[in-house]
Design a protein around this nucleic acid. Structure first.
Lengths: 169, 169
DNA sequence: ATTTGACAGTTCGATTTTAGAACTGTATGA
DNA sequence: TCATACAGTTCTAAAATCGAACTGTCAAAT
């Protein structure tokens, strides 16, 4: 499977992984959420090769996760800013941070603490059900095929028939 | 930066990415949450090469995300089951699915729907503050260096001095 | 007037990963 | 005894990544 095929799969995980599912992209997004905006900023914070950084930034802009905004003429310079689509990645980032905080800390303790402005307290992110507000766990969730999956199944069925015809010919 | 260095960084995102931050690992974990347990199951569902699948499964077992459990002798066969550490990845998975549902669906609609057993309704996952229960967004969160970050800063400081001495010599 | 440094990339050869396919070995069922 | 299921391993070719150097514009320092 190639990267660009992932985005066509009838699976929201596959499609999302097509956008953010590699090491450097996730690290770049971490920096975005920590308010880094410029090429040099990303490069020196991450130690990524300049080549790859340029490539990943372009890809994120193409996909609408970042916006490239000029901040000076002569020479032309741009900043990379999260779009709303990019900001919406926040729960993913927080979920990743939290898992690391719980399962990957060493003796030194947590690298970062998070304070909620609204209530003023240090907090952990918690995932709840949008309908009843209770904490979610894998075992309490039932998965059903949605309209996208049914369409995909029909397509797979047709593909299979096409292949069979091809073999016969 | 190499993969194994990621796990030593003073950053929970970097450490987590060191474990799950590649395309195939995330897809394998998707299958785990959909109840796939065996080598052939993963392979045929994902189209991953057998070589990489074997490698990724080993890595996940080493890191305590999966447990390798024999289900028959002669020939020896094993199943790969999520540990608690693995089950705790659920919020990350759900956050990824949800972002895909919102930003990457096509005309066919959502591939999967999620039903919460407790309340019986179809739901979306929502991330809230553990202290006050309000929805989280990036702008409402303040980041503070924790104990792990301070220790890391001191270490970086020492490393820098060591390097300077080396240059001088 | 000339050099130095910051910034944002691009280019290129060497190394590392991944893809794709074939092969190994044990057991079951026809 | 022949085919099939399962869980890998091995091999070569292709693709991605690394590391380092190079390009070009401008501002500030000498």
């Amino acid at each position: 499977m190639k990267w660009d095929e992932l985005e066509e799969e009838a699976c929201s995980i596959a499609r999302t992984i097509g956008v953010i599912g590699d090491r450097w992209t996730l690290m770049i997004l971490r920096e975005c959420f920590l308010r880094t905006r410029r090429f040099e900023g990303f490069q020196s914070a991450l130690g990524i090769t300049r080549h790859l950084l340029a490539e990943r930034l372009k890809k994120l802009v193409r996909q609408g996760v970042l916006r490239r905004i000029p901040y000076q003429e002569a020479p032309k310079r741009h900043e990379y800013i999260l779009t709303q689509k990019g900001l919406d990645l926040y729960p993913i980032m927080m979920a990743i941070v939290h898992w690391g905080d719980v399962h990957m800390v060493d003796v030194r303790g947590r690298p970062l603490l998070h304070q909620h402005r609204k209530c003023g307290k240090m907090f952990d992110p918690v995932m709840v059900c949008s309908e009843c507000g209770e904490r979610l766990s894998a075992k309490e969730v039932h998965v059903h095929p949605g309209p996208g999956a049914r369409a995909a199944l029909e397509k797979a069925h047709l593909d299979k028939k096409a292949k069979a015809r091809k073999r016969a010919a």
